[in-house]
Structures are given as C-alpha cells and as structure tokens.
Design a protein around this nucleic acid. Sequence first.
DNA 1: CAGTGGTCTAGACCACATA
DNA 2: ATGTGGTCTAGACCACTGT
Lengths: 252, 252
Amino acid sequence: MVFPDSAARNRPSARAATAQVLAPYALVREYLKHGLSVGRWPPGALMPSDSELVAQFGVSRMTVTRALRELQTDGLVTRVQGLGTYAAHLAQVSSSLTIRDLHEEITARGHRHHARVHLSRQQRATAGLAGQLGLAPGAPVFHTLIVHFEDDVALQCEDRFVNPRCAPNYLKTDFTKITPTHYLLQVAPLWEAQYSIEAGAPRVREARLLGIPGDEPCLIIVRRTVNRDIPITLARLVHPGSRYRVQGQFKP
Amino acid sequence: MVFPDSAARNRPSARAATAQVLAPYALVREYLKHGLSVGRWPPGALMPSDSELVAQFGVSRMTVTRALRELQTDGLVTRVQGLGTYAAHLAQVSSSLTIRDLHEEITARGHRHHARVHLSRQQRATAGLAGQLGLAPGAPVFHTLIVHFEDDVALQCEDRFVNPRCAPNYLKTDFTKITPTHYLLQVAPLWEAQYSIEAGAPRVREARLLGIPGDEPCLIIVRRTVNRDIPITLARLVHPGSRYRVQGQFKP
DNA sequence: CAGTGGTCTAGACCACATA
DNA sequence: ATGTGGTCTAGACCACTGT
C-alpha cells in the first residue's frame, strides 16, 4: 500500500505525467480501506481524524472529507460529529442485488425470450389487494398473468396487478413484445420497491402453466413498487427452482 | 418541490433558525430527483450542466458537484466529461439486499437463538472445494455443520468450509455462543462476497437435522467470501421455505 | 475554440461532544 | 475550551468533447 507521502504526488503535473495514478481522494480512501482490511482499525476502533489525515497526506480537508464520505456510504466507517470516525461493525453485510428485466437478462445470455399471455384484463380489487395498491376495495385494477420462456423453457410465471392511475394504458401493451417491467419503467422512471424472496411450492395453476410438478420447489419473489408515495404495481414472480437463481455480490 | 431561490436559504443563520431544512447540496439533489421522477428529464435526456445549476441555485460548484455525485452513485444520472449530465436508463434496478448475522437477526426480533453443532473438524479438501478456496487438492480445511434455532424452531442449516490460513483458530470457537459469521467478521473485517439464492429440496441429512419433510421447498443460499484475493469461506445455508424469507428494498 | 465534468485548495462557520 | 465532523465558498487547473 502506498504511504502518505504526497509531496510529489500532489503536484498536478506529476499526476498528469504518470498514467494511472489514483486521485488524492482515492489514495486516502484506499489507504484507509487497506488499513481496515488488515485489521489496523478493528471494528469499533477510533480512526484518524480529518485533521490528522490532512496533515499526513498534505491534502486539503475537502479531499479527506470526500474519501471518508465514500467509505461511510459504503458502510465501512461510522462518523459521529464531536467524536470521530470509527471502523464500522460489519454486523450486517449490505449487498447489491440486481434484478434485471427478464427479457434483457435472457437475451444477454444469448438466448431467445418469448412470453405467453394467459390473462390481461381489468378486474375489481379485493380488500387485501386494494390495501397494497392504495385503492378503495372494489376499485378497478389491471391484472396480467404471463409466462416467460427462455429458449422454450418456462422460466417465470408473472402474476401482476397494476394501479390504473399510474399506467392507464397498461392493458393496451403487447406483452409478447414488451415485458410489463420494461413498460412500467418507462411510465414511472423513478421508483422505490420492496420485495421478499422465498422458497415454496407453486400454486396449482402456476405449476400447470410452467409445466412442472406441483411439488417442485420454486423461488418466489413478491415485489411491490411505489412511485412518489403512489403504489404502482404488485407482482408475484414464480420460478422453477431448478431453472433459476438470483446472484449477487458484495464488494466494499 | 422547492424552487431554486436560495438567497435567503443560503444564510447559515436562516439554516439554523428553521428546524429541518435541507442542506443546499441536498436541496439541489432533491430538486433533480424530483424532476427525474416526474419525467422532466426522461431517460437519456440531457440535464442541466454544473454551471447552470450553480447559477440557478446561487451555490458554489462544489455543492452542485456533491449533489450530482450522489445521484450518480445511486445510478440515477450518468455524467460524461466533455458532454454533460444525462438522466440514466434504469434498465436494471440495482437494489440493496441485507444479509445479517443470524444471531443478530433473531435477537433483534426479540426471540431466542441457539445453535447445535453437529460437526466441527478438520478434513482434506476435495478437488472442487480446493478450487473454490484457492487451496491444493487434499489440503486441510475446516468444516462445520451447525443448525440454528429461533425459539426452538430450526431456521437454518449452515454447512461451512473455512480456509485455515485465514482463521487458524476457527475450530477453537464455541459456536453455540458465537456464530461462524460473527467470528469470521472479526478475523477478516473487510471482505467481498459472491452468493446465489435458489430454491430446492434439502439434502437428506439437512432435512433430518432441520426436522422437515424431504420434499419441503428450501431457500438455499450459497456464499463465497474473499478477503484481499484470499478465499476465506464457502457456506451453504439451507432454510425451510415456510420459515424464512429474504427481504430487500430499493430506494433511489 | 468554448463548454463540459473531475478534482483540488485554503479558509471559513457551524453543531456537537468531551473535558 | 478544544477537538471533532458537516458543510459551504470562490477560485483554480485539468481532461475531455464538440464545433
């Protein structure tokens, strides 16, 4: 690991001359990150203060601040005003899980995607559904039931309810060409979602549509999406366990 | 949404006077975020330049930069040097998934956690395992098999292999008191993990240890952890589908 | 060339926590 | 009173992209 030296590094000309030198703020960040990884500051330990780092690296405080703020948003340090910067307790590992549009995911693998629409209609919301979508019980909702195939193998059964207020033209979409996810992303570009992932048996109809035995373990994702406090959609995505998995990665 | 006015807001005294005013950088960020959510800048559209925002809000460029950098790390905008700032295509929703230490998760719910250790020994790595842990085939590895209970209900069967080089004293730990996850976090505080989540049937032994039928769908998490290019551990976590789910959230 | 984002500085005021 | 982090400013140089 590079040491806080900086006298030379700090000259912009030196920065430009060499090819891939880290910017000063990145240098400070990596220095601290390295120290954390080798246990120089065990979880909970007090780390160098802003002013100490300013002196050590010969940079301005804004530079140190940026380095520390990045570590903070990555959950690696905890900063408390009036006290100092502490090495975080990584009791919970917060990771990045990417849920992509299925069409994209399949075509990115170089496979063919197609969808079969089993249901696409308006109906009245039950009490529970109305609550989830912020509607009055009995209010109209859009309901689609679509099975997605990867190279003719059923991969996902997508049972979705949509708030008509957010996507009035939802049912006019040709879901064999555009997935609901893709369409809704266009209608409501900025959103907020909660979801749960669990294992369970498929419902009878889902097993039939997916062409799997009724006792095959399935990965079930239930996702609720909200845009600016207005619920948009509630989806139940059922995947045969043998054909689908969610992958993720945590990288500080 | 508040408008770029700022003349008054910018006086620190005004900031201190009112209770919960947003800091200028947050004001700029929320202004842009709001515009994105109402479709003022559709995906791919050119957004205001730094200097325009500086003029509109009457703040310094560092303040605007910070706002935009936060939006960028959240994946809401794309910035290209020499071109400008663009509204991002939210083709893939990258979300935050939290995997906590099970002991913490259970006690946080106000329940009791206890563990039963069924295996805790050193053995020789098979070829496949050695590859995953960066060891030579036949090299010694630590192997633990532990079942975790929440209020006497089996919640997780944890089958784990550990690289002795990273945690030489691993087997000396009392796993009825400290979970392997917790112990390893202390030994290697900064890490990097890859994992997959899938649904499947438990192995025969796992079903027996968990006290569930052999055909009960289970949520299976396989996680591989690496610290500074050195593999630490490989874990297979099997949860009865009816008793466990992973929850997550995406919030721009 | 002009305009864009990427980064840095030196200094400043503030709120907060501890002694 | 001192030291901590939180934030802001005014100006600067750079690399990059277009015309």
